[in-house]
Computed example of a mutant assay.
Amino acid sequence: MTDTTRTAVVTGASSGIGAATARTLAAEGFRVVCAARRAERLESLVAELGDAAVAVACDVTSDEDVARLAEVAGGRVHVLVNNAGGALGLEPVAQGDVALWQQMYDTNVLGTLRVTKALLPALVAADGEGVIVNVGSVAGFTAYEGGGGYTVAKHGVHVMSETLRLELVDQPVRITVVAPGMVQTEEFSLTRFGGDKERADAVYAGVPGPLVAQDVADAIVWMATRPAHVNVDLLVIKPRAQAAAHKVQRLP
């Protein structure tokens, strides 16, 4: 690594949007620090990317793990992609599972907080090029039945991003949010439904052309590589078939 190498950190990099983003950043010439809980999945990704990447086993709900991530990332970080998160369950609020709500908040909101705090000095030190891309969701500004715990968490990510942008207005760091709609990945819905593949597959049944992980990765990297004076506050990306969180075209 040379002094001119740009460093990017991607959390939740073991699959889906995170893995696709890591690959795309590596292709753009970044040294990519890939962080996720599942070390074996990370090692496979890093082996694929070669010298352009390094793996860090990291649970974003752990202070110790996040401190180790910051140490590996180094003194200058140009891009931070806070992607670790996810949805669990689809019960009405009246039947909400408190433990699942807690887990979603801990990962999506407090995990983003931990990683941002730990890496902010390195982002400030990146010669005016530091940018944070927080992976939100259309659930961050739209409510829908059964989505209470997830929408609460993603609303938190969006508001935290807006607050941070205000507080860091005099610092050389950009704060951005990408808000995907329906994205068909190998794990998001499967995790939400506790491994029930039939229910997970039904989410995308009949939908002509849901987004895939690479679509969101392309948007993230585009946001992260704008000139240093350009801040993309919020980028909403949905498939054409999705007019709103609750309004989706389905073919027979």
Rank of each mutant, 00 (worst) to 15 (best):
V54H: 00
P227G: 09
Q184A: 09
T176Y: 04
L234F: 05
G206E: 12
L234E: 10
V66Q: 13
M160S: 01
Q214F: 01
T7Q: 09
I237C: 02
V72Q: 06
E40V: 04
A217C: 13
R240A: 14
A84H: 07
D170Q: 12
L251N: 12
C58G: 02
E162D: 15
V115R: 00
A52H: 05
T11H: 01
T116R: 00
Y150H: 11
E28Y: 15
A139V: 03
P208W: 13
R23L: 12
G75R: 06
Y150S: 09
L25G: 03
E40L: 02
S44E: 11
G29Y: 04
A244V: 13
L234Y: 03
L110Q: 10
L211S: 11
R68H: 15
A27V: 13
A84W: 07
G16Q: 01
A22V: 07
V152Y: 03
V177E: 07
A67C: 12
T225N: 08
E40D: 14
I175E: 07
Y204A: 06
Y144A: 15
V221W: 01
A122C: 04
E28H: 15
G149N: 09
G147L: 10
V131N: 04
A73Q: 07
V81Y: 08
I175T: 09
S189G: 08
R37G: 03
Y105A: 11
A205G: 08
A39Q: 14
L120Q: 07
H246N: 12
S14A: 15
F188R: 10
V183S: 00
G86Q: 12
A57H: 10
F30V: 00
L166A: 14
V157T: 11
S14H: 08
G75T: 07
D63E: 15
G29F: 02
A228Y: 03
A27E: 15
G111K: 01
V131G: 01
V9Q: 06
M223I: 13
C34Y: 02
D65T: 07
A213V: 11
A241D: 12
L235H: 02
G96R: 06
V138H: 09
H155N: 10
G194W: 04
A228W: 05
P180G: 08
V79K: 00
V152M: 14
V115A: 01
A228D: 04
L69P: 06
G96A: 14
A8K: 04
K154Y: 02
A39F: 09
W222S: 11
H158R: 15
S14Q: 13
D196H: 10
A243T: 06
G85Q: 12
H78Y: 08
W101V: 13
R76Q: 12
T176I: 08
L113A: 14
L49N: 02
D215K: 06
V56S: 03
G29K: 03
L168H: 07
V207N: 00
A213S: 14
S14N: 12
S62K: 09
V66R: 09
K238V: 14
N82K: 11
D233V: 15
D3H: 12
L100R: 13
M182N: 10
A213P: 05
L234S: 03
T61F: 09
R226P: 00
A243W: 03
A205H: 13
R6P: 00
F193S: 08
R31K: 11
Q95R: 14
G86I: 14
N231T: 11
A19I: 11
A245I: 03
L251E: 15
P239Q: 01
T5F: 00
L113P: 00
L235F: 02
C58F: 05
